[in-house]
Write a protein that binds this DNA or RNA. Sequence first.
RNA 1: GCCGGCGUGGUGGAACAGGUAGACACAGGGGACUUAAAAUCCCCCGGCAUUGCGCCAUACGGGUUCGAUUCCCGUCGCCGGUACCA
Length: 834
Amino acid sequence: MKYDFAAIETKWQKKWEQTKPYAAVTGDKRPKFYGLIEFPYPSAAGLHVGHPRPFTAMDIICRKKRMQGYNVLNPIGFDAFGLPTENFAIKNHIHPSIVTKQNIENFTRQLKMLGYGFDWDRVVDTTDPKYYHWTQWIFLQMFKHGLAYKTTMPVNWCTSCKCVLANEEVVEGVCERCGAPVIRKEKSQWMLRITKYADRLIDDLDDESLDYIERVKTQQKNWIGRSTGTEVTFKTNTEDDITVYTTRVDTLFGVTYTVISPEHPLLKKWQPLIRNWDEVAAYQAAAARKSDFERGELNHDKTGVRLSGIEVVNPANGKTVPMFVSDYVLMGYGTGIVMGVPGHDQRDWDFATKFGIPIVEVVQGGDITKEAFTLKDDTGIMVNSGFLNGMTVKEAIPAMKKYAVEQGWGHEKVNYKLRDWVFSRQRYWGEPIPMIWCEKCGWVPVPEDQLPLVLPQVESYEPTDDGESPISKMTDWVNTTCPCCGAPAKRETDTMPQWAGSSWYYLRYMDPHDDKLPVSREAEEYWGPVDWYNGGMEHTTLHLLYSRFWHKFLYDIGVVHTKEPYAKRTSHGMILGQNPHYVGNAKTEEEKQALIEKYGSQALRPAVKMSKSLGNVVNPDDVVKAYGADTMRLYIMFIGDFEKVAAWSDDAVKGCKRFLDRVWNLMDQAADGDEISEKNAPSVHKAIKKVTEDIDELKLNTAIAALMTLVNEFYANGLTKGDLEALMLLLSPFAPHMVEEMWELTGYAAKTGKMAMQMPWPEFDEGKMTASTVEMAVQVLGKLRGTVTVPVDSEQEVVVAEALKNEKVARFVEGKQIVKTILVKNKLVNLIVK
RNA sequence: GCCGGCGUGGUGGAACAGGUAGACACAGGGGACUUAAAAUCCCCCGGCAUUGCGCCAUACGGGUUCGAUUCCCGUCGCCGGUACCA
């Protein structure tokens, strides 16, 4: 009988649809396991082969957990608000809600086609008012707790599209879509005070119960960017003192100037005192015109203007130094004013060199005529620094800090790179922010019993010329009355960013139909926290940080009972496509040269990111059609180390199909006998151990290799039905459709009354894993000279005696003395001769 | 620049509390079965020497060790994140 994957997969998918073997039961007595994958954005292009990698891995983990007796929650949903859908809708003149509905239907079809064991009764869709009701509710709680506020701040403004862009939409200083320059524009925006949680977001990462891969923790910490330094106050010749922030207070004696950011409000106040005001004002205006890109990434050339008439006094030595305005000082970090220590900070060195400012050495160890000496370790000794002279930098920092505190002009200060979260988007396809502006009462929340505040239907959802959300044109909707005083008032027309809906969706899966709370206490206490969350590296900073922040807030207001949302976080690597311009494909030297000339370093890579323009996109539909879902699942796991990038290969897929064919054909060869055969016992038990452990460690590629090895053994040794039964159970999480069909055909379904996926996971017996003899390596002076077969656990004398019988070994030992013998039990013996 | 990570056959990749490098697979070669092809089954497959009994091989150069892909120091190259954060 042939392995007819198409018919088999359709048959079993239908059966699972009807019998719902993947339903999660809240409150069940079995131990719970909540396995989560990042829900997809339902794009018009459909599922990409990148999706099945994490989805299949988590599906396998969850299937094994079910067989091990766990009550498993393995949910799926759709992160459906956002720009791509809105842009698609604008281009094709279809309402975003219709586009979304179609895309979700297509994704659902594809996900079911791949045989995932999702609980389809718990699907979450972020654009469903029943869902965003609670997204809005959480926002209101944040507002009530002082975590949401509105403020004016610069945003990215596309000069051609005339609209506000998210940072991700600005690529190298121009608009991602139209290529026009992007400038900064002041706009009033809703903000979330994530900075208030900065310390907890860092410190809780070190909790022992939190199992995140190391690079994720590091990235979170770097993003928050906590640094401990000192704030130092300098007196000036004006009525205002200035304060600077520094992490190198030890270098205070090396200060030769100070710099103020062009946006600093003090400049305006000092206008009458600044003798070259015209020059300064011109510099300010020029800086404001520059995009962040010009100011930062592109151009590190230092510019600036000296403030004529302003002088400041270094509190450490009483010396008077000048002040400059320069855009290398950021208003948003520290105090917006820095002290210039050109001897020991490269940026300051560049600036001082350009403006002819003196450079003073206060830490010995470098050559400050060539570059700044910035080392912070013990190699530098303090000089030209009064009472600090002779100390190392490490000693000088606390000494100076202590002195500054005593003198009353300095104190320790912690700073963060993390800024508050810009939460407004002037776009249509997002959750309306449920706030009302009243001239008398200010910002008033929409009463909770009026939630959800449904996104109104508009005629045009294109961005408006003035940069306001398209909803602002809906005067019927915008004009309302103040819930507080009843006076005429206006609704907020900004919507939330795409990050909003994804910040708490994992909670909704626990209790998806609740209409009183985002999640009931009962469901959350049973299912929380997520036991295992896998997602892409591209989400390890923002999404992870945002959702951890929301979760901590919900913890504070008593909605959830854990401090962290996810107990364990892993990440998968991207799937790359074959590079059509790879030099390796070239037949002749000339062709090679031509490719390198045309595509540069791109031509040197065998695999690159899939893209339509390169024509290397693989569609899961095509793979499933040609080889079946089980082959697709197997291949995407076999492709390589789960955490690393991997290149798709059409050829290699065939190998996985061949393997499944070989498994299928074993049905004809299995001899009677319900037990695991004695001959195969060591192989079977080793395979059980390997597959069990590898799934837990996310090493799905070697788990599959172990199954392939087992099948090869069966072909070599023959097998019983009992051997085949063990193989079917081990393969069931990987190739569920085929295994269920085999389970039925071999009579196990009738005998047990269960599907294979409902059987207990096989247990291995350590005692049955080893044969009676073992092959050991024999080394002479550390070099392999032969192998011997000896009884398991043989003593040294036995192994050595046997080893010396080996002709080759004997030759290398001949005429020499064995001075030492190293034995690694059942593995090798190393003879040291002289 | 800074912070992570990685460099193993023609290819994807195994093996790292130091212990037979190249599991498993793809591509390639040979054979069996076929009128033939596909499919299937069996064998070979790092390099150089030789016709098996040797030498060299885990980016490169050192070190520790009986023994290093694995640990340490240095160099080169690639990938990801981040970037005038004082």
